[in-house]
Amino acid sequence: GETKIIYHLDGQETPYLVKLPLPAERVTLADFKGVLQRPSYKFFFKSMDDDFGVVKEEISDDNAKLPCFNGRVVSWLVSA
């Protein structure tokens, strides 16, 4: 499998796309960081919350699996 991750960088209009050679349910924050090489950023991901619906959730645990929608991951990188 392959996972497409779209990421928005510090408010830039056009998002970036990276592809990881892993199925979406196995991709972790560490996998994503390894491709990006951007150490001083906070990582937020499109996520579903039972109370609020669609939210941007910050993930900082490198072992955390990334939230996935239709085989895609959507993220926002914010300068720390």
Rank of each mutant, 00 (worst) to 15 (best):
L22A: 05
V74L: 07
K56P: 06
R72L: 15
N63R: 09
G34R: 14
V18P: 06
S60F: 10
K33R: 03
S40F: 10
E57S: 10
R26E: 13
D51E: 12
C68N: 11
L77W: 00
I59V: 08
Y41R: 02
S40P: 09
W76F: 06
D51H: 13
V73H: 05
K19F: 10
P15T: 12
F32H: 07
V35K: 08
D61P: 05
K65A: 10
G53V: 12
F43S: 07
K33Q: 00
A80S: 13
R72S: 14
V74N: 06
Y16I: 15
G11D: 14
D31I: 10
V27F: 10
W76S: 01
V54E: 14
R26T: 10
A80R: 10
V27H: 04
T3W: 02
I5C: 06
K46V: 07
D49C: 13
G71E: 04
L29I: 03
F43V: 04
V18C: 05
Y7R: 01
F69P: 00
P39T: 13
V74T: 13
S47D: 04
K46A: 13
H8I: 03
I59G: 03
S60E: 09
K65E: 01
P23Y: 06
Y41M: 06
A80N: 14
L36C: 05
F32Q: 01
T14L: 08
D61E: 09
L66H: 07
P39S: 13
Y16R: 14
L66R: 03
S40Y: 14
C68Q: 10
F52A: 15
G53Y: 15
F44M: 01
N70K: 12
R38H: 12
L77P: 00
P39R: 12
L66I: 07
D10Y: 00
G1V: 09
C68S: 13
F69E: 11
P15Q: 12
G53Q: 15
L77N: 02
Y41C: 09
S79Y: 01
H8V: 06
Q12I: 13
G34Y: 08
E58H: 09
Q37S: 12
S47K: 15
Y16W: 05
P67K: 00
K33V: 02
K56V: 14
K42P: 02
K65R: 12
P23R: 04
S79N: 11
F44P: 03
Y16T: 10
D49A: 13
L22T: 05
F52Q: 15
D49I: 09
A24M: 06
E57W: 06
F32M: 04
T28P: 05
V35C: 12
A80E: 14
E13L: 07
L9I: 14
D50I: 07
E2P: 06
M48A: 15
T28Q: 01
K46H: 11
P23C: 02
C68E: 04
A80F: 11
V27I: 12
V18Y: 05
D31Y: 03
Y41W: 08
L22K: 12
D61S: 05
D10A: 06
L77D: 07
L36N: 06
G53H: 15
I59S: 03
R72K: 14
I6N: 07
D51N: 15
S79W: 03
Y16D: 03
R38P: 08
M48K: 13
E13W: 08
V27A: 07
G11M: 04
F32A: 04
T14A: 11
Q12D: 15
A30F: 01
P23K: 03
P23M: 00
P21F: 05
P15W: 06
P15F: 01
K65M: 09
V55K: 14
F52K: 15
N63T: 11
L36K: 02
D51Y: 09
N63K: 10
P15S: 11
V18H: 09
F45N: 07
G1Q: 12
